[in-house]
């Protein structure tokens, strides 16, 4: 009975205050969409880190004719130098760090180069002896890149030690920035949402002061008096969260599944299923925000 009564109070509250309730829905919708977008960026970063760091290799480029490094002063790498490098890579000392070592000759390098730039006229002008031989080293722990770098960068016959992580980190930095920007916007919008919820509850309390006054006199409990107001805000915020979730899901469905996956087939993207993991968090966040801000407002504006 009391539940039915509270529900009917909520219904009449929302009807009287329809425009404010709509604006609460929209503002929570926008703010939670940005919160969710920031979350998705982070998920994507983690996903790519996990995917790439397993595949990251350190490449030791060996000297060619025109190398300028001091370790290449003696000209192109000699057979002895190459053997020494390989022996060092496979020695006991580096066994804890090195997983596998693959040698890539100049001819193989040219083959890869041709594959990569198949559509470019540059292919025809490049010959095998312009490209360096290399050792591709995959690491047990990708974070231990410096160990290899220090040990081999001044080794005779090694031109340069390169880590693909440098390149990836730059990408992750940009994505991190994007998620920070999304979070800042989300923060501002959430602040707006809180203020708007508070104002809505205040108006609602004002338009129903007669009812609440009578409720107090006949001994209605605090819960019965305040719950309709709180739930009014919570319902609006949860609706906003549902809209935000739907938007994020649709965006991931169309942008990631429909476009990015086809355009960048080597990259691991989050799936729209993973977006669904965010939904409960967004709804909970919306409900808690609305609940807290209406509770604080009621403490000031509805005497019990």
């Amino acid at each position: 009975m009391r539940l039915a009564f509270i529900l009917s109070e909520i219904g009449s509250g929302i009807r009287r205050n329809l425009s404010m309730v709509t604006s609460v829905i929209l503002v929570t919708f926008i703010s939670l969409t940005f919160v969710g977008a920031a979350g998705l960026f982070q998920l994507q970063i983690n996903q790519m880190k996990g995917y790439w760091y397993d595949r990251v290799q350190v490449t030791l480029y060996l000297c060619v004719d025109n190398s300028s490094e001091t370790s290449c002063a003696a000209g192109p790498v000699t057979d002895e130098q190459r053997e020494a490098i390989q022996a060092k890579l496979e020695s006991e000392q580096f066994a804890p760090y090195v997983d596998t070592v693959t040698y890539e000759s100049q001819e193989e390098a040219l083959g890869h180069f041709r594959d990569q730039f198949a559509n470019s006229p540059i292919v025809d002008s490049v010959t095998a002896d312009q490209l360096p031989e290399s050792y591709r080293v995959s690491l047990v722990d990708a974070e231990k890149y410096e160990v290899i770098d220090e040990a081999f960068s001044s080794e005779p016959g090694v031109d340069a030690v390169s880590d693909q992580r440098d390149f990836l980190e730059a990408i992750f930095r940009y994505m991190n920035w994007a998620s920070v920007v999304a979070l800042v916007i989300a923060g501002i919008m959430t602040f707006c949402a809180i203020l708007l919820i508070a104002t809505t509850i205040r108006l609602s309390a004002f338009s129903r002061r007669r009812e609440t006054g009578i409720m107090r006199l006949v001994g209605a409990s605090k819960a019965v008096i305040q719950l309709p107001f709180i739930l009014e805000g919570v319902i609006a915020a949860v609706l906003g969260a549902v809209l935000a979730s739907a938007t994020l899901w649709a965006a991931s469905k169309f942008v990631i599944d429909g476009w990015l996956v086809d355009t960048f087939p080597q990259t691991a993207f989050i799936s729209s299923q993973q977006v669904l993991l965010l939904v409960p968090a967004l709804i909970l966040l919306g409900a808690v925000l609305a609940g807290l801000s209406s509770l604080l407002t009621l403490r000031r504006y509805v005497k019990v």
């Binding site: 009975m1 009391r2 009564f5 007669r210 009812e211 006054g213 009578i214 409720m215 006949v218 001994g219 209605a220 409990s221 019965v224 008096i225």
Partner: peptide
């Protein structure tokens, strides 16, 4: 008086019972 203007006589009186959880 302090009646609720949009409720009938019955509903005005019933209101006092509803808010303390009396059954229909």
């Amino acid at each position: 008086f302090r009646l609720l203007p949009n409720k009938t006589v019955f509903a005005n009186v019933a209101f006092a019972m509803q808010v303390i959880g009396r059954s229909r």
